[in-house]
Amino acid sequence: MSGIIQVKNVSKSYWRDSIETSVLHDISLDIKEGEFTALMGPSGSGKTTLLNLISGIDKPSKGEIIINGADISKLSESALAKWRSTNIGFVFQFYNLIPVLTAFENVELPILLTKLSKAERKQHVETALNIVGLNDRMDHYPKQLSGGQEQRVAIARAIVTDPVILVADEPTGDLDKHSADEILLLMERLNKEFNKTIVMVTHDPHAASKAHVIRHLEKGDLIQETV
């Protein structure tokens, strides 16, 4: 059975000052629906680049990326933006919340683009904040929250559209151990209870240990897969 995420012979190069830098070399992998995958590797191994390609915020130089049956490498920028808004939830290392918006408003951002009514949006946001355990902080601004709480708001923002896939780039990288454990627990819960397919980039073996599959990259090559 084919995975929900199929990466087929993907290569990626960047041009900087007319010098081509090859970041990924002929990568192929399958991630099944409901799988929790960790991408590990040293800095510069290409794990974040691979995550960016899977989430449709960057395009491969060669190869195909098929998500849920759709080849996203062939989509236009605007089609890709629309596709991302419904299929992918993003969690960043530095949360990337909008500082002038409350927790509620930050979580509401992705669904502002939908046709949901105000009442429906409110319900979705409250549900998402409830899942991450922050329904009592919805009127707080990011600066009034701890790092762990900010990351939970970011996770609520990622799941508010009920996407099939969650991508997380070092989600615990900026957190203390206690907060990191809370975030990992939350991600495990999202994977188990809500059947979210999760692709997480991490340096942290403890974080990676929560995943079903750990894929190791080195110098742009996929070198090892640990189940």
């Binding site: 915020i57 933006a81 419904t86 993003f90 909008i98 683009l113």
Partner: peptide, 16 residues
């Protein structure tokens, strides 16, 4: 710049 990039990842188009 970073916020605009984040908004783009959330599905905001160039028009938005």
């Amino acid at each position: 710049t970073r916020e605009y990039a984040v908004l783009k990842t959330l599905g905001f188009s160039g028009k938005h």
